[in-house]
Design a binder for these strands. Sequence first.
DNA 1: AGAAAAATGAGAATGATTATCATTATTAGT
DNA 2: ACTAATAATGATAATCATTCTCATTTTTCT
Lengths: 137, 137
Amino acid sequence: MHDRLNKNSMAVLKMVRASHSHPTASEVYEAVRQERPQIGLASIYRILHNLVEQNYIKELRHGDDTCRYDAHTARHDHAICTQCGALLDIPIDVALPQDLLEAAAQATGIEFSSHELRLYGRCPTCQGQAVQHKTVE
Amino acid sequence: MHDRLNKNSMAVLKMVRASHSHPTASEVYEAVRQERPQIGLASIYRILHNLVEQNYIKELRHGDDTCRYDAHTARHDHAICTQCGALLDIPIDVALPQDLLEAAAQATGIEFSSHELRLYGRCPTCQGQAVQHKTVE
DNA sequence: AGAAAAATGAGAATGATTATCATTATTAGT
DNA sequence: ACTAATAATGATAATCATTCTCATTTTTCT
Ligand SMILES: [Mn+2]
Ligand SMILES: [Mn+2]
Ligand SMILES: [Zn+2]
Ligand SMILES: [Zn+2]
């Protein structure tokens, strides 16, 4: 399943692994360009798809229209800021009761294979800013 | 928060409510056109955004690049088919332990306001089809 | 080395969504 | 009802992330 990676692919994988912020394709492009200035954006997309295919990384999508990549491949959950859209890792293992998951899967008829919990709320950065609707105009 | 809705907005809201399949903007457009043939796609997008803003409906996004709308505004969970991408409602209330949710929120520092559980697996339709990788070529 | 196969990157094409703007309804004041 | 002001509409163009195409380059294999 895991093929050997060439230099471009290695550079992309390293960048995604080094980033702890679920980078977008164009963020990966800008970073990888530092090391491999000749690389093209089409290759970034192609390589990211290959890495997903080969289970080196995962693809994430939420509110905005760009998709993000995650080198953290173990099952884990995310928190999404309702104000700025930030996508944060939940750094602990949230052990949801297996029977609840199975009951939910059964209710839809899907062949359950994995799950993700998403929490919504204001992120720490946004909490530090003026509270919505409470500022004097 | 809820303004009065005009005819176009009502037609859009009715369509989203009648559909049980999380329709896309262009699916809404095609359906609403039957009743209001002069409506433009720009109005569909504008109205859908207004309805989201006013909490009549919710916006959902997952794997593909189109966003989907849901008239079911009470908190609920979804199942996503790993083969065809179908987005299905989980028709039961999955009561996750509140302390787990709070611990997860605390771990990220977000001001917890809501959550969604996503299950991944093959949907009933896809299960009915040939099993992946087991077909003879 | 030389042929065949695979990978690359520049640039065009695609497709969903958003912005613009002239026209058409709706509202409020008379 | 009449009119001025305001808001909503829809056709069309613009945007932007992603995908496609294809000539060129790099790698693999003999
Ligand atoms: Mn993550
Ligand atoms: Mn739903
Ligand atoms: Zn935030
Ligand atoms: Zn399916």
